[in-house]
């Protein structure tokens, strides 16, 4: 039994997936690919990820495994942005602009059609 103040561990006996959304998988792969290409060492990555996880807001007790995965990968994504910014590889404003362009491209794209970046320019 968990002690009274302890949050339950999500899904200890379930075979839950690792990724709960495609963006989580892409963020993971992008990080591994950048490290393998030599743009940062895995230890540097772990420091940034640990810093983000250490300051993340607690997950509510009612959180599902999917909520936990999202919470974890939000820290992951923020850590990746931190590290790329620290390395001078990606400026925050530029990431924001590109993200907004993708959002515009999506809104301009009918359902079921691949989203092209150019559609948001």
């Amino acid at each position: 039994m968990p002690s009274e103040t302890a949050a339950a561990i999500p899904g200890p006996r379930d075979a839950t997936p690792h990724f709960f959304a495609p963006w989580q998988a892409r963020a993971f792969a992008l990080t591994v690919a950048l490290s393998e290409a030599g743009h940062f060492a895995w230890t540097e990555w772990a420091e940034h990820l640990g810093a983000r996880i250490g300051t993340a807001t607690p997950v509510p007790d009612s959180a599902t495994p999917g909520d936990h995965a999202e919470h974890y990968y939000l820290s992951w994504l923020a850590a990746l942005e931190d590290l790329l910014r620290a390395k001078g590889l990606a400026e925050a404003a530029l990431i924001r602009d590109l993200a907004e362009t993708w959002q515009r491209a999506a809104r301009a794209t009918p359902h079921g059609t691949p989203i092209r970046f150019e559609a948001g320019l």
């Binding site: 892409r26 990606a90 993708w102």
Partner: peptide, 20 residues
């Protein structure tokens, strides 16, 4: 209704991926 939507995380990851 008839257009695609990207949530913020997806758009941020797509932005990073495109930039890299």
């Amino acid at each position: 209704e008839d257009h695609s939507q990207l949530d913020d995380m997806t758009a941020r990851v797509m932005a990073l991926e495109k930039l890299m």
